[in-house]
Simulated scan of single mutants.
Amino acid sequence: MTGRTRWSFGCGPAAPVALAVAAALLTATACSSPHAGDGGDGRARSEGATRAIRPVEGCGTGAWTDPADLSADRAPARCRPGAPPAAPLAEHRRLTIATGTLSAEYVAPLVVALDKGEFAREGLDVTLKVLPTPEALPLLAKGDVDALWAAPEAAVMNGVRGGFDIRWVAGNFSPGPGSKSGLWARLKDGESAADVTLSGRRLGTMIGKGSVIAYPMEKALERYGGDLSRIQYQQLGSADVLTALENGGVDSAWLLDPVWRRVDDKPGYAFLGGQPAGEPLGGLLYGPSLLSEDTDAGVALLRAYIRTVNTYFASDYKADAAFVTYLAKLLKTDAAILRSTPLLRMDWEIRSGTTDRLQAAYEAQGAVPGSSPPLPEPRTVDRRLYEEAVGHHP
């Protein structure tokens, strides 16, 4: 491998989400940065308040799309391959990015950036550390972890509500054409997909309440006679979700790539909907260390990530057999399986209102305090750093 690669793996059982969030909230005051707060608009913070945004070579008008554009066929923002060019920091920084896995395809841009030396070109010595979100969240708020590759789940919203200075700063992907990763139902005798009603049915899921899939699930349930509050959730291990659906242990399940291939076009199963096309639901979350204490490093990290997307994932990266073989080796997965699923549309931008829609779904599930008003977008999202990385002045 090239670059200064270090791998680190978390150990021990994952703490239950509710307990982790409760512990996080108890330490919120102690963990919050002295720069916490959003200055009224979620953008004016410490040195970042007066940072200049300059044109960036290789990143023209195509390097930005209107955040309000939610169209399914929206082309994601792109710079030219190799752009934005590296701008090495004067002094090397050591950064730790927490992620729940290193083998899923949606983590590929980080793993490739590390292997190809894109982080090193920015003067960053990056460690990818495997940690579940509930464990990583308080570490991110304290600065023990610099970034989190995850999603603005209910645990994140509850942490921000409790005082954590955390923002979602870059997207990850939206599903490509042909993807059927999402909500599947087991049909009853004589039932067709058009007849499905999910009210009161049991749903198998790896995460349970409070995951970002609550939002696309809510959209699917609206079409099939159910709502989030009337679904019986059954939390299962990743290897057990499909088995439970096949043997009738659950009536529906959220199936990920490539598991849904096992029931695709198979009699007795129906795909009801997945993640909205063109709308990333996760990506990079920053804590105070990169939001305000060292914004230069925060922008540099995004620059390396965005350059990796533009260079290796800009179009149909699965059309290149050699690259698929290389990627499968990095992710420690089977190349045939990787090739069999539709590609992901890698997308660093964040759509307007996504965290509003997520919070509405969390409230419907009972995963966030219903008595508290939703967090406004400036408390949850900061687009300023990737705008600077590509030279877009809003």
Rank of each mutant, 00 (worst) to 15 (best):
E279M: 13
E279N: 11
E279R: 15
E279K: 14
P280G: 09
L281I: 08
G282L: 03
G282I: 01
L284D: 04
L284V: 09
L285R: 00
Y286R: 06
G287A: 05
G287E: 10
P288T: 06
S289L: 06
S289V: 11
S289P: 09
L290C: 09
L290F: 02
L291Q: 02
L291V: 04
S292I: 03
S292V: 05
S292M: 05
E293G: 11
E293H: 12
D294R: 11
T295A: 15
D296N: 13
A297L: 13
A297H: 11
G298Q: 10
G298S: 09
G298H: 08
V299C: 07
V299N: 03
A300G: 03
A300H: 12
A300Y: 02
L301D: 04
L301A: 13
L301H: 05
L302E: 02
L302G: 01
I306L: 07
I306R: 05
R307E: 08
T308W: 08
T308G: 10
V309S: 03
V309Y: 12
N310K: 11
N310W: 04
N310A: 06
T311K: 08
Y312I: 14
F313M: 07
F313N: 11
F313E: 10
A314F: 02
A314E: 10
S315F: 13
S315T: 15
D316N: 10
D316W: 05
Y317W: 15
Y317Q: 14
A319Y: 02
A319D: 08
A319E: 11
D320K: 07
A321Y: 00
A322C: 06
A322I: 07
A322W: 06
F323M: 10
F323Y: 14
L327T: 10
A328I: 07
K329I: 10
L331T: 14
L331V: 11
K332V: 15
T333F: 01
T333I: 13
D334P: 01
A335I: 06
A336Y: 00
A336N: 12
A336M: 00
L338M: 12
L338P: 04
R339Q: 15
R339K: 15
R339H: 14
S340W: 01
S340H: 01
S340C: 03
T341W: 00
L343F: 13
R345F: 08
R345Q: 15
R345E: 14
M346A: 09
M346E: 09
W348M: 06
E349Q: 15
I350Q: 01
R351E: 01
R351G: 00
S352P: 00
S352H: 14
G353H: 04
G353Y: 02
G353N: 05
G353V: 03
G353E: 03
T354G: 00
T354I: 11
T355W: 00
T355M: 02
T355G: 00
T355E: 01
D356A: 09
R357V: 08
R357S: 12
R357Q: 13
L358S: 03
L358W: 01
Q359E: 03
Q359T: 01
Q359G: 01
A360N: 13
A361Q: 11
A361T: 10
Y362F: 15
Y362W: 03
Y362H: 00
Y362Q: 00
E363I: 09
E363T: 14
E363C: 11
E363S: 13
A364N: 12
A364R: 14
Q365E: 15
Q365K: 08
G366M: 12
G366I: 07
